[in-house]
Design a protein around this nucleic acid. Structure first.
Lengths: 228, 228
DNA sequence: GGCAAGCCGTACCGTACGTTACGGTTCGGC
DNA sequence: GCCGAACCGTAACGTACGGTACGGCTTGCC
């Protein structure tokens, strides 16, 4: 471990779950991580150093020089993908009910799309597998770029909705978690456990709309009779 | 593999996700599986055959004779624990709103208790890890004894509530999934990913009550103005 | 007592894989 | 053209672990 992005430096990753997406990766390194990612998605847990080296057409020596050890490679791979996941960014300036509803629906749809993707499933699986055995940085990375990133984007929208008198809730965090539950339901755990559960574009759209309607029914401001 | 509960018989487990809890386990075998379970919960993924044998004070030869191979032992362990998990059984005969609400709250509380237990987390982790690599029977077992068992118990209650004019929904499955989402929210995925998230008795009770209220707000029959 | 079956403890085997080492090749700088 | 750095491909090493074999001990049966 001399030079290069020292992914295994304890002081860097262990204490700080904050993600530094710009870890100064060269294009070649990104290509290697992409190869590792593809392998992870396709082959499941068969992510051996030899396989990654072969897939990326690089030598194992290079992998070790760049990433320290297997855990470093895994962490770098997860961070690399995580840095690419972005759900809709919405400005909370559209103050009417229609645009708020549309924003929520967009968030819901994006999120369902993410958690049902092969990549997300593979990443969560590997992070969960590693969460059991000591070093839990992978889990923290996934959470930070998944559930918490979503919250960070959605909460301002909720707050804006409240400011505009469209939403009514006491705590933005709690409201977010309710929305999260209404959107995700049992989808993620079933997919992670290997349950076949095909989500087409159509069903995702429907689910997003349903979740949004339910959330508004729970937290929409009571301005007169709500009927339809 | 001669005699004994042939856990690895393809024809038994592969095609049939239904659980046969009474697999004719001797007391000694149960004790061994309990030891394996404890090891799984305590040591995470360090569930080697040698470790199980030492912990259970039995020989590896016996493990292989009884369970076929490592996967068989794992499957037997998961099934053994799964057969012990039981959430509240409720008869749908208490037809008033108070008892329905109490039943739902009980289900919610039990479920939160289950998914936040060390045992459940460990089991789900190992099942998810294995779901990535081929044979997914573990995931099916966990799902069948977790989420699907819950649905099987809760749906009759929902149907009874609808019959009694207390609930209003089109599809029991969809209604159940909404309830599931309101109860679980992000708890399970966060725990699986290693997020510290202490759930005390008190918070679980509060969460169960909140989820129940929200569910009733969404699916309670509209009999006059709802305003508390 | 004699015997067979079941099981414990342990040594052993084969392999997979993480990790290291090394020869050969490419490439930028002078 | 020459040099060193970076990197590829591959061989080699060490170890952990799944799986097997075997000697000795206990137990139930005759």
């Amino acid at each position: 471990m001399t030079g290069g992005p020292a992914f295994r430096e304890k002081s860097v990753l262990h204490s700080v779950p904050e993600i530094d997406t710009s870890e100064a990766l060269t294009e070649r390194q990104k290509a290697v991580l992409d190869a590792a990612l593809r392998l992870l998605v396709e082959e499941g847990d068969q992510l051996t150093m030899t396989a990654v080296a072969r897939r990326a057409s690089c030598s194992k020596e290079t992998l070790y020089k760049w990433f320290g050890d297997r855990d470093g490679l895994l962490t770098a791979t997860v961070q690399w993908q995580a840095s690419k996941v972005r759900v809709a960014q919405v400005d909370g300036k559209g103050l009417d009910l229609a645009s708020l509803s549309a924003s929520l629906e967009r968030f819901a749809s994006d999120w369902l799309q993410v958690i049902s993707s092969d990549t997300s499933i593979a990443l969560n699986r590997v992070a969960i597998s590693h969460a059991g055995s000591g070093k839990d940085n992978l889990g923290a990375v996934v959470l930070e770029n998944g559930r918490f990133a979503l919250a960070k984007r959605l909460k301002p929208v909720l707050e804006a909705g409240r400011q505009a008198g469209l939403l009514d809730f006491a705590d933005a965090e709690t409201a977010f978690r309710t929305f999260f539950g209404l959107v995700a339901r049992d989808v993620q755990i079933r997919l992670l456990l290997g349950d076949r559960l095909e989500l087409t574009e159509a069903t995702i759209g429907g689910d997003a709309a349903r979740a949004t309607q339910q959330f508004l029914a729970l937290h929409g401001a009571k301005t007169g009779p709500q009927g339809l």
